[in-house]
């Protein structure tokens, strides 16, 4: 069974351009979502991690709670927003990749934001004071904090990517799993399993696992100092 699954996975990779298309779509959709989450979440995380204001604790708690948000609920929320009868229905974004990106962004953001805040918070205050003492301005202090906390920030991105690329409920709901358009690996797996094609589902699962392994290995091998901070 396992051997059969493996050989099926390999032959699918070798022979079926549709599979490659699905894989590529998964990567692009989830990658875009995580990157957008990074573009929003990292600056916001810096702001939250470095500043002290009334209600900050409540905000951080809220963000951390967001990490536990079930994907289907996020999907439902984004669906209701983008539905033709919803407030953003006129944009016609339901059942598009943009909608999937939006849903995954909502899922990835608490991860990126929450872990970034934790990372920034773990940078000793004295170190940041030292940077100020050497003449750093606000922005430079923030960049230094990011540099010091980058291991955790990278972890935040990897964790976010891991969450969204493996998620099925939300993308199924807002993407519709349209073949050749919005079908991604997880929804394809879901469909195959539903049809009883367990081995095909497993094969796709193996591909997903391989991609995750490759991504994690790549992240681990990224030498400190080669990151854009």
């Amino acid at each position: 069974m396992i051997r059969e699954t493996f050989s099926q996975a390999l032959s699918m990779l070798a022979g079926d351009p549709q599979v490659w298309e699905i894989i590529l779509r998964s990567l692009v959709v989830s990658g875009t979502a995580v990157l957008s989450a990074a573009l929003v979440g990292i600056p916001l995380g810096l702001l939250l991690g470095l500043s002290r204001f009334r209600g900050r604790g409540a905000v951080v708690t809220l963000v951390n709670t967001g990490m536990a948000l079930p994907p289907v609920v996020v999907g439902l929320f984004v669906y209701l927003l983008l539905s033709r009868s919803g407030p953003l229905g006129s944009l016609g974004l339901l059942y598009t990749k943009q909608a999937m990106v939006a849903a995954q962004l909502v899922m990835a953001l608490p991860f990126v934001l929450g872990i970034t805040v934790t990372g920034i918070g773990s940078v000793p205050r004295e170190l940041l004071m030292q940077a100020r003492s050497l003449g750093a301005g606000r922005l430079q202090v923030a960049l230094l904090a990011l540099r010091e906390a980058r291991a955790l920030v990278m972890l935040a991105l990897v964790a976010g990517m891991g969450r969204v690329i493996a998620e099925v409920g939300a993308v199924m709901m807002v993407g519709g799993n349209f073949r050749g358009e919005t079908q991604v690996m997880t929804t394809a797996i879901m469909e195959e399993v539903r049809k009883g094609n367990y081995s095909l589902g497993l094969a796709l699962g193996l591909i997903l696992l391989t991609i995750a392994l490759a991504a994690n290995t790549l992240m681990m091998r990224l030498k400190p100092g080669r990151l854009p901070v």
Binding site: V28, V29, Q98, R147, P224, G225, R226, P228, V229
Partner: peptide, 22 residues
Amino acid sequence: HGRKPVTLAWWLPFLAAILAVA
């Protein structure tokens, strides 16, 4: 010299990806 900070090139593929999806 192996520790170059701030390389715009690092972000380019991702910006391209965002545009592609958009």
